[in-house]
């Protein structure tokens, strides 16, 4: 019995961790390249999920099309947020708290527009219509094709992203921006263009992770907000700057929320209602005790510096 629960939770940790990684990489990118702790990232994720839902119902159930359109819509939303909100505040040299508030406000607007939409078209807690195949099942444990969508897609995307950052001119420019903003401007990097592309990239990541998250569970206007602090916990474990650190952080958070929680529940009867506290405790402990997160493990790596 216990073994079964354990395996089940490990698989869940893998799956959730991969998605956290995708979302947290977006946070790390915005934080290091754009210098913004972006809480609206949660809603970019939700936008991706709703796009996937609508596409799967009305256009196509082809996963490539679903993910592609989710990426496009979410990246447009991200770019529009930049142009209409974040860029003016940057120009105004607003403090980081104002930027933080602005990101909350953008998130709220998107979230409640989605609420209104969902309310009008009755789109609460809907499942994305993809063909579900059960690959393996026992009494209390199901392994479906969802796992084989989510995990490999995430891994492929993470690898693609690393290549992009380390082996393309755009990646070089983004890293230059992350390293030293003023210097980047001086040496002639087209700062605004790089920012636009970063926002598009961040939005696409969020959109895809939202679609996958929606396929895994269900779609609702709060879904991004519910996971955003877990995702921030992952990014903070990565020191808000290191790519490998963020990925490791994502799996650590997912593992803590699922496997460790499962064990605590099974062995000590700890109620699952405490589960949401796990990422928060991780955030507080890491920020207070080890704000650099895992970055030191990856010193040799060419991570994004801040």
């Amino acid at each position: 019995m216990f073994e079964r629960i354990l395996i089940d939770s490990l698989i869940r940790s893998m799956q959730v961790g991969s998605l956290y990684a995708l979302m947290a990489l977006g946070i790390t990118l915005t934080m290091s390249v754009l210098k913004l702790p972006n809480f609206a990232h949660a809603e970019f994720v939700t936008v991706g999920a709703y796009t996937a839902l609508i596409v799967s119902r009305n256009v196509s159930t082809n996963p490539i099309i679903i993910l592609g359109l989710s990426a496009i819509v979410a990246s447009v939303v991200a770019l529009v947020s930049h142009i209409t909100v974040f860029r003016p505040f940057e120009k105004q040299k607003s403090s980081i708290y104002i930027m933080l508030l602005a990101s909350f406000a953008v998130g709220l607007i998107i979230r409640y527009v989605l609420f209104l939409t969902a309310d009008t078209f009755d789109l609460f807690d809907q499942r994305i219509q993809v063909p579900l195949e059960i690959w393996y099942r026992t009494d209390n444990f199901i392994l479906s094709n969802v796992f084989f969508w989510v995990v490999p897609t995430s891994i492929v995307l993470v690898i693609a992203l690393s290549l992009l950052l380390n082996a393309t001119p755009l990646g070089r420019e983004m890293r230059a921006l992350a390293d030293n903003f003023d210097l980047a401007r001086v040496i002639g990097i087209p700062v605004e263009r790089v920012k636009w592309l970063t926002w598009l990239l961040v939005g696409a990541l969020a959109g895809i992770s939202g679609a996958l998250w929606g396929i895994q569970t269900s779609v609702s206007p709060l879904m991004g907000w519910v996971v955003i602090l877990s995702v921030f916990a992952a990014a903070i474990l990565g020191g808000l700057s290191s790519f490998p650190g963020t990925i490791l952080g994502a799996y650590v958070v997912a593992f803590s929320e699922n496997t460790i929680m499962q064990v605590l529940n099974f062995q000590f009867g700890l109620s699952f209602s405490f589960k949401p506290a796990i990422p928060f405790i991780i955030i507080v402990i890491v920020l207070l005790i080890r704000p650099e997160g895992f970055t030191q493990f990856f010193k040799s790596n060419r991570s994004l510096k801040r």
Binding site: L229, A277, F280, I283, V284, L287, P291
Partner: peptide
């Protein structure tokens, strides 16, 4: 805390905990 805005985050998260 290493950075100023971490205070914002810690307080926000503290409320949720």
């Amino acid at each position: 805390l290493k950075e100023e805005w971490f205070l914002a985050l810690v307080l926000l998260v503290g409320g949720e905990i």
